[in-house]
Nucleic acid binder design. Sequence first.
DNA 1: TTGTATGCGTTATCAT
DNA 2: ATGATAACGCATACAA
Lengths: 338, 338
Amino acid sequence: MLGQLMPVTIKEIAEIAGVCHSTVSRALHGNEMINAGTRAKIKRLADEMGYVPSAVALSLRSQKTLTVGIVVTSINDPFFGRIVEGIENVARAANYSTFLSTSGFGEVGEREVVQSFYRRRVDAIIISSLWGDLTLGEEFERIKIPIVLINNQTEGKYLHSVAVDDVRGGEVATRHLLELGHRRISYLETKNRWKSNRLRREGYEKAHRAASVPLDPKLVIPPLADDDVSRGEKALEQLLEAKATAVFCYNDMTAIGLMNACRAARVRVPQDISIVGYDDVELTNHVTPALTTMHQPRRQLGQQAMEMTLALLAGEDSVPDQVLDSRLVVRASTASPA
Amino acid sequence: MLGQLMPVTIKEIAEIAGVCHSTVSRALHGNEMINAGTRAKIKRLADEMGYVPSAVALSLRSQKTLTVGIVVTSINDPFFGRIVEGIENVARAANYSTFLSTSGFGEVGEREVVQSFYRRRVDAIIISSLWGDLTLGEEFERIKIPIVLINNQTEGKYLHSVAVDDVRGGEVATRHLLELGHRRISYLETKNRWKSNRLRREGYEKAHRAASVPLDPKLVIPPLADDDVSRGEKALEQLLEAKATAVFCYNDMTAIGLMNACRAARVRVPQDISIVGYDDVELTNHVTPALTTMHQPRRQLGQQAMEMTLALLAGEDSVPDQVLDSRLVVRASTASPA
DNA sequence: TTGTATGCGTTATCAT
DNA sequence: ATGATAACGCATACAA
């Protein structure tokens, strides 16, 4: 049906113009000394014929593709949407294109994706999805291109990263509850992002120590489900048993699940229990009551990651890891205990 | 093992193996008659050296890049997330990679993106973002590759498309309200997607005619803001003036904006006013009351689009446009009028 | 069975 | 000022 009519090449332009293809190349590039007449003629011709240079050929020759691969666990997750947006904006402004790929949660998916990016000869890779301290290390060892991790979950030091200070985040969130007067504050853990989970819990503990409020292990609720929302929904019972008056949740979706459970059980938020989330997903503004949460600068996370990538690509010697700050957004889901 | 700066090429393997590079190529491809010994040796060598073929070189030679470009207005919009996910899954299974790019809402962004994809020599383009009946037509005219539109907003017939039946969707949503006993039902319009807006309104009118309920032009509320949510928030006053007892909103985000306004004004949903959204974004399940809405099979939309693309790429003669059905999801935001 | 040569589209280094 | 030629990495038609 669609006759794959081939794109115009400089060779074809050259033929019609009655010159050599290298002349066309020069004319189009402009920066050579070339007869003004032929240059004009060739430019006009190229325009008429709808010439668009082949990035493929350019890539082969220059050994640079001007592409970066992005891997996220799920493109649907509202958390990643803004990150990708941030990356894409900076990338586009720098004439880079982005390959997007999802890895799911398994390590296998990640290897596959990285492998595929390597075949494509992307100039760099930005990853916002590491599942654990996987063996992807070897993979990276061989692939000598810049790799930037966003909120990375590994300890490897050979990689560049931009992240939010999770310890501080957990600390600020918890302090907010302490300052409201809460003394029995729960932390609701997650399953699949063990590092940031640990850091936020560290912050949670740190805040308690700073306020000289004793920690009760019973108040740390381990993950009861895979899915973020269900995890929150299933936690209510344990929270009540532990007599918590406030909860700091690993992320917003878990907090929202918990809120659902509270509504169903006629537990009032924030009168009976205060809830703090993490991420500040759009959603948090639209639930009832609006959720108090730690705002993560997600768009900026993506932008910084891409800017670091560009710096690395430009061969800059020292591209320091970035640590961004999250900030508390107080809404309606937290209050002083009864 | 030995990580070198540049990726390994068949030439390098050939040198070490003491054979010609074409022999390596054949050995790696397997389907040629070749000495079993040398094949094994070469394969082992390639493995040891960490050889990964260059997709760039392959593309140049084969004139196929095994890539498709995706353009959406915003990657952050929950509506597009699932669509992209659907595309990506099918694409990856078929060994295609996806370039992702956002166009914003202007036509300029779209041209730019399509242009960039063309330079990259993508094999096809999937667009889920057309702003109007833009002049992108010429652009497509020249680019002789398959283009698949998702929920397209243009009338061009030279393009392929997969869409949800908006007329029927509007009709079903409205009928639901009519069946609940409502007689003054508003339609809340949108701004930047005039075609589907028109179609949903058509469905809205059709349902009224089918039920012999007179239409009141005052009940159709034109867009009062650019942003989806604000549009909903600003509409309440006019709704009350028009004495509407129910509202069919162009999409979920607008419906949620309206719900916010209702809460602020102490207008009870659904007791005082029933609200129906459109899209069934995740969010709708988590607002209070949970939103009744038209479910769009977004993931399937993406999958179908990519499958159509693959069919077109495979040279299939007739690849019919797809029209998917949306279905009503009744939740808590609708009830019979007082 | 394997080596040689060619071309994909482009830029760059030679010549002329 | 411009033409000829090589090179980027790979697959393949043709020769041996």
